[in-house]
Design a protein around this nucleic acid. Sequence first.
DNA 1: GGCGCCTCCTGGAGGC
DNA 2: TGCCTCCAGGAGGCGC
Length: 306
Amino acid sequence: MPELPEVEVVRAGLAPAVVGAMISGVSVSDERALTRHDGDGGAFERALTGRRIGAAARRGKFLWMPLDDEATASEAIVGHLGMSGQMLLRESGAGPERHERVRLDIVHPIHGDLAVVFADQRTFGSLAVDTLVPTDDGAPGGFGTALPRVPCQVAHIARDPLDPAFDERAFRASLAVKRSGIKRVLLDQTVVSGIGNIYADEILWAARIHPDAPASALSTRAAGRILAEARAVLQKALAEGGTSFDAQYVNVNGQAGYFAHSLHAYGRTAQPCDRCAAPLVRVSFTNRSSHYCPRCQRLPRPRLSR
DNA sequence: GGCGCCTCCTGGAGGC
DNA sequence: TGCCTCCAGGAGGCGC
């Protein structure tokens, strides 16, 4: 599933081919890919045709490409890969991809004619043309852009742990007031972005913290450990090209990542913990799963009131 | 306002 | 072989 490392691999793969390119044609084959767009497929096509792509940026799991000159752009194509979205770079005129939803034909001054194909099996992903708004903190909107602007749809999303402008103090303050389990908080993109179910399990395993441990009960040291492990896990996954279990996640060239081989918790139900050899457990968690080591990641006992 | 459940969706896997 | 059910999960909506 595309989380921060996978989306960053896609962004980094797209950037050299799309920045500076002119959109020569747009074809929407499934309007369900435009659920976040204010208008129908025709409006989407008219809004993009003839425009130039100024940058390829990312915050958390959101990607966006400012239109026209990046420095003065007021609009951007904003995309989310959802669970199964793919952004594929193809030769101009290449045949349709399986689950293709939207195709952008582009002309790059160096690379010539190309196609950017948005394919999405489960249709949870989307593309939209959105207005750019100033960032709350005045820092660059995200990776891949130096300008302090983000799409309106992304403005409420917190920065991710790899962002130089990530606000550690705000993160710790959020944990201190959240009564929910820490895993639920890590999945809340308004607290910290880019983390999904897979990396939440990996981060908590690395930090030796139980997924249901109340966030507000965590010590300052534990909160710091979570942040440090979040950065380490995400960096390692990024270096290994992301996590691919099947064809659900591939880079812009259709290639899988290797981080699935480095997982310590997610998907390893009943297998021995890499630290203590205790069998890992899987529990149901809001229509999905949590994986953890019952020995290394103990639920803190509630303090007895006197 | 905080919290947590539900819904959207597709296709692979497994059971019968 | 074919049909049915379950499962995976990001993000927003909604009820409590």
